[in-house]
Amino acid sequence: MTGATFDTATLYGLCGAALVGIGLFGLVLDPKPIRKILAFNLVGAGVFLVFGVIARRGAAAGFGGDPVPQALVITGIVVAFSATALAVTLVQRLSSAATDAGQPGQAASVPPKGETGTPGQGDAAS
């Protein structure tokens, strides 16, 4: 274990770690799917910050930071956005399908026992 270094990069690294912790807390506990998606984005931001700190520490050859992790972060952010888009659309369709089928959004306290009961049936009419 080398000596503790404490500079701006480490500060933001700790901020990233804290964001991961807070995000995980929200992702695991929050019953609402939108809040879970929000928490997922928080965790994502934390992870990308860790990448950013690693890039900053790898600054060399005249660049402000190591370009490879920075490029990975850009790819990561776009992938995270696509995931959020898919998740949000799923939540939207789920709640509109539920309201169409006359089941008002189930009360928060009752966990949907749907899985063990009667999951939907196989493929559409073939």
Partner: peptide, 9 residues
């Protein structure tokens, strides 16, 4: 199949 419980799953 677009049903509610498969979307929940």
């Amino acid at each position: 199949d677009g049903k509610a419980e498969t979307m929940r799953a």
